[in-house]
Computed example of a mutant assay.
Amino acid sequence: MVHTVTKINSLQIPEFIKKYQNQEKFMAFCKECPNYNTLWSCPPLRIDATQFLQAFNYIYIIGVKVIYDTETIKLANTAEKIKEITTRSLREVKNKLSDKMLSLESEIPDSISLASGGCYLCERCKRRDNLPCKQPEKMRYSLDSFGFDLTAITSELLQIDLKWSKNSLPEYYTLIHALLTKKSLGTRLENIEIY
């Protein structure tokens, strides 16, 4: 049904923020999202995004293209099938990617990851009930919740154009995670196996 391709690039945090962050512009998009103020991973954040990021020196962008085979694209011939295939495939890859990122955090001192989109660890996020996160050791903020331009990031740093579903399943989707570190990892992530 799917296969994946992983691309990784890095920048120093100050350069990354200067080049790709526009909180005012991208928070306006977040406010239109159904996850806004309903998931702990999504805006409005209860942390100072700038202060959080400035505790690190490097950001490693990990993009995973989830590529559909021709048969799967043909099978997605209704809105319901597109949604079902998209949700199932992206959730599976995202879960594996998130597990890998948590594993990297345990191996790399002073690191933390950022995830693709909202957190779905729980059936219903406790934020909806104004309660603390039930799994703070696993929940990670979404990269877009910091006001970053994901389209520019994937295009310029990973040479991937983002695709979206309109009336058919696209050739691929892209999940974008990040790893924040205090020290350079050099080539350590070059041959990382995600999926």
Rank of each mutant, 00 (worst) to 15 (best):
M1C: 08
V2R: 13
T4P: 09
V5K: 14
K7D: 06
S10I: 02
F16A: 04
Q21G: 06
Q21V: 10
Q23R: 11
K25E: 12
K25A: 13
F26L: 09
F26Y: 15
M27H: 13
M27A: 09
A28Y: 10
K31C: 01
E32G: 03
C33I: 00
Y36K: 00
N37V: 00
T38C: 02
L39G: 00
S41Y: 03
C42S: 05
C42Y: 04
P44A: 06
I47V: 14
I47E: 00
D48K: 09
T50I: 11
Q51C: 05
F52H: 06
F52I: 12
L53V: 15
A55Q: 15
F56K: 10
F56D: 09
Y58T: 10
Y60P: 08
I62C: 14
G63T: 12
V64T: 15
V64D: 09
K65F: 02
V66K: 00
D69K: 08
T72P: 08
T72W: 12
L75H: 14
A79C: 10
E80F: 14
K83P: 04
I85G: 07
T87N: 03
T87F: 01
T87I: 11
R88D: 03
E92S: 10
V93G: 05
K96A: 10
K96G: 06
L97F: 14
D99S: 13
K100A: 10
L102Y: 07
L104C: 11
E105Q: 13
E105L: 09
S106H: 07
E107S: 13
P109Y: 05
P109M: 04
S111P: 02
I112R: 14
I112K: 13
L114N: 09
L114P: 08
S116H: 15
S116Y: 14
G117L: 02
G118E: 00
G118N: 02
G118R: 05
C119Q: 02
E123M: 02
E123R: 06
C125P: 01
C125E: 08
R128W: 00
R128S: 03
R128K: 14
R128C: 04
R128N: 10
L131V: 01
K134D: 00
K134P: 01
Q135F: 09
E137A: 13
K138W: 01
M139I: 08
Y141I: 07
S142W: 01
S145Q: 03
F146W: 02
G147W: 03
G147C: 07
A152K: 13
T154S: 14
S155A: 12
S155Q: 13
E156L: 11
L157E: 07
L158Y: 09
Q159E: 08
I160N: 06
D161E: 14
K163P: 01
N167P: 05
N167R: 14
E171H: 07
E171A: 05
Y172D: 00
Y172W: 02
Y173L: 09
Y173M: 09
T174Y: 08
T174I: 04
I176M: 14
L180P: 01
T181L: 05
K183Y: 08
S184F: 12
G186K: 07
G186W: 12
G186Q: 10
G186A: 13
R188A: 15
I192M: 12
I192S: 04
I192Q: 07
E193D: 11
E193P: 03
Y195N: 13
